[in-house]
Simulated scan of single mutants.
Amino acid sequence: MSKSTQRIVQIIAVSALAFGLAACNKAADEGQTAGQKLDSAIANTEKAADNAAANASAAATNAADAAKDAAKEAGNAMVSAADSASITAAVNAGLIKDSELSAIKINVDTKDGVVTLTGEAPNQAAKDRAGDIAKAVQGVSSVANNLTVKAG
């Protein structure tokens, strides 16, 4: 249990004890001996402590669930980044195989399966081929072909 969770549990327990002692029924105390009053106060305090423990347990469970959710989201983000990197690498490898296209002059960016091509192509046919190469890579959902055709 983390220090902050322990601190919260301690605060709840102390509060429960204080409320338990304060909650002693004044009207029921009349005519009771000191021992009976003490027994009643202890019983009320035990109930309050049990409630505090249940509340602390629920809070700890909620905190653990929140931590699991955060870890899962971080894992998903890492998988997405790895997928994007592998798509980018595959597109670059395809561009290198084409004799008219320069992988050095074409920038490939990938995010969530969307590939964006920027840079220069020597002609319209090469630009179209670059888009086709990117579309053929597994995991690509769409291609933004922002290549410009080299003038003259």
Rank of each mutant, 00 (worst) to 15 (best):
I106A: 02
A126D: 01
A28D: 10
N25T: 05
V143E: 00
K26M: 04
A77I: 11
D65I: 08
D39A: 11
A134R: 02
A53F: 05
I12H: 03
D98P: 03
C24K: 04
V137Q: 00
K105V: 09
A48N: 04
L147K: 01
D69M: 09
E73Y: 10
A52K: 00
A103P: 10
G152Y: 07
G119P: 02
S142M: 08
T88I: 04
A85V: 14
K37Y: 01
A126T: 09
S99P: 10
A126G: 03
A66D: 14
Q124L: 06
A56D: 02
T118N: 11
A28T: 03
V9F: 10
K111C: 15
E30M: 06
V108C: 06
N62P: 03
Q124H: 11
S142A: 11
G131V: 01
F19P: 03
N51C: 07
T33Q: 08
I104L: 15
A90K: 01
A93H: 11
S57E: 11
A64P: 02
N76H: 15
T148W: 07
V115H: 00
A71N: 14
V91G: 00
E30I: 09
I104R: 15
A77W: 14
G94F: 00
D128L: 14
A81D: 15
S2N: 07
A52V: 01
T88M: 12
K150G: 05
L95D: 00
A13S: 15
A41P: 00
A130H: 00
A13Q: 10
K3Y: 09
N76P: 10
A54Y: 03
D132S: 15
R7M: 09
S86T: 12
L101V: 06
I12F: 15
G119C: 12
A126P: 01
P122L: 01
V9M: 08
A144W: 04
A54M: 13
A89K: 10
S99W: 12
A58W: 12
G94S: 01
A74N: 10
N123K: 14
A28G: 06
A18C: 10
D98M: 02
N55P: 02
K26Y: 06
I104S: 11
Q124I: 06
E100W: 08
N92L: 15
S84H: 10
T61N: 13
V9Q: 14
D29H: 13
C24W: 01
Q6W: 06
L21G: 02
V9G: 09
G131Y: 03
A49W: 05
A70L: 15
A67L: 03
A121W: 00
V114R: 03
Q6L: 03
A48K: 00
S57Q: 11
L17T: 12
K150R: 08
K105Y: 07
A93L: 08
D128A: 15
E30G: 04
G35P: 05
D83V: 11
M1L: 07
D29W: 05
T118A: 09
N55E: 09
A125P: 02
V137E: 01
K72M: 08
A67Q: 08
S142W: 04
T5Q: 09
A71Y: 05
L95E: 00
A67Y: 04
A13V: 12
Q6D: 15
